[in-house]
């Protein structure tokens, strides 16, 4: 094992190999690996962001849902209120109308009663006349006794 020229040849080979690796082997590998690392990091970051977005969206949708529920509740309550109002109004109107109808009916009734009484009066006077005529046995001169009869009718 003596040192000879092999030493320099091997050193030269070594130098060439190092140069070759530095120049041609390492950079493309580094570029590929780093670029993939970047891609993966970007992907992870994107996934993280997407998850965050998803959380936000879920929260927002929950908010919207709650708002909608509230609004729907309000609307239903408003509708109920309005319905009861309308019912109250209708009741009041009906009452007024009913009163009016009752009043009209009463007036009509009064009128009917009055008319019936008038008729009855004339009938009574006629019946009275006839009765009196029968009792007296002779014809009462309606004309002669009109004043009397009118007085009688007025009394009834």
């Amino acid at each position: 094992m003596n040192i000879n020229l092999t030493l320099f040849s091997q050193a030269l080979t070594f130098a060439i190999l190092i140069w070759f690796t530095v120049k041609f082997v390492w950079p493309p590998l580094l570029a590929a690996v780093e670029s993939r690392q970047k891609t993966i990091a970007d992907g992870l970051a994107y996934a993280e962001r997407a998850k965050h977005d998803l959380d936000l969206a879920a929260k927002r949708s929950a908010d919207i849902l709650r708002e909608a529920k509230e609004k729907a509740g309000e609307i239903v309550a408003g509708g109920e209120k309005r319905g009861s109002e309308i019912i109250e109004q209708a009741k009041a109107q009906a009452r007024v109308e009913g009163d009016r109808i009752i009043a009209g009916a009463k007036a009509e009734l009064d009128k009917e009663v009055f008319r019936a009484r008038e008729q009855l009066r004339t009938h009574v006077s006629a019946i009275a006349l006839a009765g009196a005529g029968k009792i007296l046995g002779r014809e009462i001169d309606a004309k002669a006794h009109n004043d009397l009869l009118d007085k009688l009718v007025a009394e009834i």
């Binding site: 000879n4 030493l7 091997q10 130098a15």
Partner: peptide
């Protein structure tokens, strides 16, 4: 020779 060449480099 080889190892010494490497080490010397």
């Amino acid at each position: 020779n080889t190892t010494f060449a490497l080490a010397l480099s």
